[in-house]
């Protein structure tokens, strides 16, 4: 198991390096650079930028360097936590991302937990009460959940929250806590504002996972060992929860690795709509402005999350199913 972990970790590093190279090239591909945007800024302010200045700036920022030189400059510092400078915002990338990435991860994890906690019991109920009225209702809700665009759901929920419940939306803290130091009160206040984005981000995965859970459980309920469990004299609840559900969880766990990045990219639109200080909106801004060090660093972190998510999924699967455990 230890050697397995070490090997997996090594592979992860290799994967991340490859991803960083490919994404670096992809981001470099479109014509123009962040400098152009910057110069545009200067010119619009009426500053006279001579071609000499442009040339010296280009040299200073290494705009015309070959791509491998640029990549090396960036990656050799990135290992030490220096991800370069944001052209557009004139701040170090690490400080820009650092303040937001934990918030993004936290919110995605919360959305993931929400999705699982809802999807598993609802899926189990739906499968064990197949073709009943509640099952049909759940199915309709699932299709709605999968089909409804997140921004629309965000707007509708925002409206409901502020109109009927008087909750302040579009912010993370109430006025009283906005500049207050961290404490229990502030945390509770944060949570009371956080449920809305969590629900919005998690709805799509919840609906989808419920569907997966239902289909799988129906499959497993037909398995021989479920009949074996019944033939021992076990009650239906034990048969379902101990013998069937555990075997039906596989695809959910397998999907875990892919769900995490999906949640994070789903979060972009929701964060823009709900005005949340997550990484999403900043990432989109960076891509629009060709703020390449910012963009590439985001991509890097997203891919690290994907790889870590996959490792976690594999470990969870090994815990769940003895057949995939390594001897």
């Amino acid at each position: 198991m230890i050697t397995f972990l070490i090997r997996r970790l090594l592979f992860m590093v290799v994967t991340v390096v490859f991803i960083s190279m490919i994404s670096f090239v992809l981001i470099e591909l479109p014509p123009g650079s962040a400098l152009d945007a910057k110069l545009q800024q200067f010119r619009s302010r009426g500053l006279n930028v001579t071609s000499d200045v442009v040339k010296s700036l280009e040299e200073r920022y290494g705009i015309n360097d070959p791509i491998y030189t640029k990549y090396w400059k960036w990656i050799s510092r990135a290992v030490y936590g220096d991800f370069g400078q944001s052209f557009y915002l004139d701040q170090p990338v690490s400080s820009l991302i650092g303040s937001r990435i934990w918030f993004s991860i936290g919110m995605s994890t919360a959305a993931l937990l929400f999705a699982w906690l809802v999807a598993i019991p609802v899926g189990v109920y739906s499968a064990t009460h197949r073709n009943s009225l509640p099952d049909y209702l759940i199915t309709v809700m699932q299709f709605l959940g999968v089909a409804i665009p997140e921004f629309l759901l965000a707007i509708v929920l925002m409206f409901i929250a502020s109109w009927y419940f008087g909750v302040e939306v579009g912010v993370l803290y109430s006025k009283a806590y906005r500049d207050a130091p961290w404490g229990v009160g502030k945390l509770l206040d944060l949570l009371s504002h956080l449920w809305l984005p969590v629900v919005v981000i998690g709805t799509h995965s919840t609906a989808w996972l419920t569907r997966v859970m239902r289909a799988n459980l129906l499959d497993v309920m037909g398995a021989q060992y479920v009949q074996t469990a019944r033939s021992k004299g076990l009650g239906e609840r034990v048969v379902v929860w101990k013998h069937a559900v555990r075997n039906a969880l596989h695809p959910l766990v397998m999907a875990l690795g892919a769900t995490l990045p999906a949640l994070i990219s789903g979060e972009v639109i929701v964060s823009i709509v709900l005005n949340l200080p997550t990484t999403g909106p900043l990432y989109v801004q960076a891509l629009i402005n060709k703020d390449m060090y910012l963009a590439i660093t985001f991509l890097l972190f997203l891919s690290i999350l994907l790889v870590v998510g996959n490792l976690l999924a594999d470990l969870a699967l090994a815990w769940l199913d003895p057949r995939v455990r390594l001897e």
Binding site: T228, S231, K232, P322
Partner: peptide, 23 residues
């Protein structure tokens, strides 16, 4: 009925490969 199953009547199946819970 549950008190009868397993206690008074036992059952074995055709497919030993799938009759036991893998977990």
């Amino acid at each position: 009925m549950r008190a009868v199953r397993g206690r008074h009547i036992g059952m074995i199946f055709q497919e030993p490969m799938t009759a036991l819970n893998p977990c």
